Amino acid sequence: MTGARIEHLVTSGTFSLDGGTWDVENNVWIIGDDEEVIVVDAAHDAEAIAEALRGRTLRAIVCTHAHNDHIDAAPALAARTGAPVLLHPDDLPLWKQTHPDRAPDGELAEGQVLEVAGVSLAVLHTPGHAPGAICLHVPALTALFGGDTLFAGGPGATGRSYSDFPTIVDSIRDRLLTLPRDTVVYTGHGETTTIAAEAPHLQEWIDQGF
């Protein structure tokens, strides 16, 4: 057995909201060791994610938020592995748009701690991109799994239903930029970044209404 590590998979599909549909590529993050793992955001392709598990025990499927491109493969992956799907309850209205007949298996809440492969994953409630958006802080791996709350270059989008720009700025300022500066942000789409790289730009985002 090796220590806990981070593995990365990119899946492709579509994001649909407010009557529009866009092609997207999503980051799927796998956290764990040779025995057990947690998946962050089961996007688009349950079979590809299951293959990446390579027979390891899946402890949980964590949804950073309930936009369809982050949860569309979650029920199928849960059915295949027996792992519970976890979501912050404030995102249930969004979840039901994609999966009206299948509820999540458990709730995520501020301050909750998940355990896998000897490391702790702390749940941070970071609304703004979506009401129930969360991030996972993993100090042992100097990592933050940020979903669509913080990207390389700025906050996640807030121009559609259930989103709010002042709220996401508050979440980033109060919950994320207070983390150690060397924390690597593993994003829901695109490249990783660090708290140190993004922190100096907070006032610019506010001034621009990003």
Rank of each mutant, 00 (worst) to 15 (best):
T2R: 15
G3S: 08
A4N: 00
A4I: 02
I6Y: 05
L9M: 04
L9D: 04
L9K: 11
S12W: 12
L17F: 12
D18I: 05
G19I: 10
W22S: 15
I31N: 04
D33Q: 08
E35M: 10
V37N: 04
I38N: 07
V39T: 06
V39R: 03
D41Y: 09
D45P: 02
A50Q: 13
R54I: 09
R56C: 00
R56K: 03
T57K: 13
I61N: 04
V62D: 03
A66R: 04
H67I: 14
D69E: 10
D72R: 02
D72L: 06
D72M: 05
A73C: 03
A78S: 13
A79F: 08
A79Y: 13
P84T: 11
P89Q: 09
D90Y: 15
D90R: 15
D91C: 02
L92A: 12
P93H: 06
T98P: 03
D101T: 08
A103M: 14
A103T: 12
L108P: 05
E110D: 15
G118C: 02
G118L: 04
P127L: 08
G128S: 05
A130V: 02
L136W: 12
H137I: 10
A140Q: 14
A140W: 09
L144A: 00
L144M: 03
D148H: 11
D148F: 06
D148C: 09
T149Q: 00
L150Q: 00
F151R: 03
F151G: 02
A152H: 12
G153D: 04
T158C: 15
T158F: 14
G159N: 13
D164P: 05
F165I: 08
V169T: 12
D170T: 13
S171L: 01
T178Y: 03
P180L: 14
D182Y: 11
V185D: 01
Y186R: 02
Y186T: 02
G188M: 06
H189Y: 11
G190N: 02
T193Q: 01
A197F: 10
A199L: 11
P200R: 02
P200Y: 02
L202F: 11
Q203F: 12
W205T: 12
